[in-house]
């Protein structure tokens, strides 16, 4: 299982690298789709069917929005000569990556070995969720019952985002 997920994650990394370095913006967006749909396969292998369904819908919608934006434009990432600011940002990125790498190595020591989750909440949910929520699907039981306020907050975020998009796209800009 770990090998299969490692291979797919490796493919996702290659897709991500191509998405970042592609000259044509349309190929970059499609390569971003590789990462998203690879994630769907990972979810299926990790026994998370709900997540796979949601992710496949969300990824398709995101891809449609991005393609619609890109097709309306010149589609090229304009090449300008590297300036001091560009070198500065590369140095910053490498420094940040080294620091994060160090801290992740420290944190990885306290992670469980893959496939041996020892989170305490899991047992409590697994034992009692069916009786207390009446839902056969434990994920929906957690989302809509134990963490109902969380879902309410999520709905608020969605409404705010829709209002924001309507406001941004409706107003006429200053010429």
């Amino acid at each position: 299982m770990e090998v299969a997920i490692s291979i797919i994650t490796g493919l996702m990394i290659i897709g991500a690298l191509y998405a970042i370095h592609a000259k044509d913006l349309l190929s970059a967006v499609i390569a971003c789709g590789i990462v998203g749909y690879g994630l769907v396969i990972c979810f299926l292998l990790l026994k998370a069917p709900d997540l796979a369904i949601v992710q496949i819908v969300v990824e398709t919608i995101t891809l449609i929005i991005m393609v619609a934006v890109v097709l309306d434009s010149s589609r090229e990432e304009r090449y300008l000569k590297p300036d001091p600011q560009g070198y500065m940002s590369i140095v910053t990125a490498v420094l940040l990556i080294v620091v994060l790498f160090y801290f992740f190595r420290l944190a990885a020591a306290s992670l469980d070995v893959f496939g041996n989750s020892t989170l305490r909440m899991a047992d409590a949910y697994l034992e009692r969720a069916t009786d207390r929520t009446g839902s056969a699907n434990l994920v929906t039981g957690v989302v809509f019952d134990f963490r109902g306020y969380d879902t309410l907050g999520e709905a608020t975020v969605l409404v705010t985002a829709v209002l924001g998009i309507l406001t941004i796209l409706r107003i006429k800009g200053k010429k």
């Binding site: 990790l46 026994k47 998370a48 709900d50 997540l51 949601v54 992710q55 969300v58 919608i61 995101t62 989750s117 989170l119 909440m121 899991a122 949910y125 697994l126 969720a129 434990l138 994920v139 039981g141 957690v142 989302v143 963490r147 969380d150 879902t151 999520e154 975020v157 969605l158 985002a161 829709v162």
Partner: peptide, 18 residues
């Protein structure tokens, strides 16, 4: 498998779309 991380990711995916 543990349902709690899956429930959290379910919320996060939709917010990511927004």
């Amino acid at each position: 498998v543990d349902p709690l991380p899956q429930a959290m990711v379910l919320t996060a995916i939709v917010i990511g779309l927004a």
